[in-house]
Design a protein around this nucleic acid. Structure first.
Lengths: 135, 135
DNA sequence: CTAAGAATTAGAGCGCGCTCTAAGTCAATG
DNA sequence: CATTGACTTAGAGCGCGCTCTAATTCTTAG
C-alpha cells in the first residue's frame, strides 16, 4: 500500500490542536514532545499520531497537571512498556486530584448561584422567570 | 446588648479562610479588600463579615476569576445598591464560564479514564478488579 | 524589665507557562 | 528571478498571582 500518510505543518498542527505554533516548539524544546519529523527543508511535519499525543497532553494541561509532571509522564512513555504500571499510577493519581477539583468547583458553583439568587431576591424578581430586559 | 463581636488577628483570619496572611495584606493593598479594622496598636482585626467576604472572594478566585474582574466586582459593591443588576450580570457571566469549564473537565476526565483502562487492558487486568499490589 | 514572637510597611523577587523577538532560511507565485 | 510569507533558532520578555524580605513596632510570658 502506498504510504501517503497525511502530514501537517506546524501551523496546521496548531489549528488542529488549539495549541499555538510557538507553544508547540516550546514543548519540543523542553523535551515534552519528542523531536517531530522534518521535511527536507527542515520544516516540522506532524503526523496524526503526533496530533493525538498533543491532544492527550492538552487534556492533562487543561486539567491542571504541571508541565513537570507531564515531562515525567513522557519520560515513562519513552522508557518502554515496563513503565505501564507507573503510568497507570500517575494517571490515576491525577484523576483523583481532578475528582476533588470537580467537587470543589461544584460547591463553588452552588455558592455563586446562591449569591445570584440572593441579589435577584433583593430586586424582587423571581429567579426562574427573570427575563433579561435591555438595560 | 454588649457588642463583643468576635474579631480575629490576621493569622486567625488566614487560618479560617485558607488564605495566607501575606495574601490578605496583598488583597487589601490592591484594593480588593477594603481597609479592615485596626486594634489600637495598629494591628488588623477581622470581623465575621470580613471572613465571609474573603470566603466569597476565594470562591471566585478558585473558579478562575481573574483578580482584575474581582476588583471590578468589589468596585460595584462599594458603589451602592443601584449596581445590583450589574453584579448579577457579572456573576451570571462567570457562572456561565464555569459551566463550560466543568463540561470540559468532565470530558477530559473521561479521556483520562479511558487511557487508564487502555493501559490496564495492556496488562491483561480487568479494570474493576484491579488490586494495588505492593509494587 | 527583658526577650520572644507576631504584627506592620513598601517594595523586591519568584515560579509558571507561555509568548514574542530578531535574524535568518526556505517555498510558492507571478 | 524577485517577492511574499511561512518556517527556523536561541533566547529574552511578560502577565499573573502571589510570596518573601528587611527594617521596625507591638504584645505577652516569665
Amino acid at each position: 500500500m502506498s504510504d501517503v500518510e497525511p502530514q501537517y505543518t506546524i501551523e496546521e498542527a496548531a489549528q488542529r490542536t488549539g495549541v499555538s505554533a510557538h507553544t508547540l516548539r516550546y514543548y519540543e524544546r523542553i523535551g515534552l514532545l519528542d523531536p517531530v519529523g522534518r521535511a527536507p527543508s527542515g520544516h516540522r511535519r506532524y503526523t496524526e499520531g503526533d496530533i493525538g499525543l498533543i491532544e492527550f497532553l492538552t487534556c492533562l494541561r487543561q486539567t491542571g497537571m504541571p508541565i513537570r509532571a507531564m515531562q515525567h509522564f513522557m519520560a515513562l512513555m519513552r522508557a518502554g512498556d515496563h513503565t505501564i504500571p507507573d503510568r497507570i499510577e500517575a494517571l490515576a493519581a491525577h484523576r483523583e486530584a481532578l475528582t476533588e477539583q470537580l467537587a470543589l468547583l461544584r460547591r463553588h458553583f452552588e455558592a455563586i448561584t446562591n449569591k445570584i439568587e440572593y441579589y435577584r431576591a433583593l430586586l424582587g424578581e423571581h429567579p426562574d422567570e427573570l427575563i433579561r430586559s435591555g438595560h
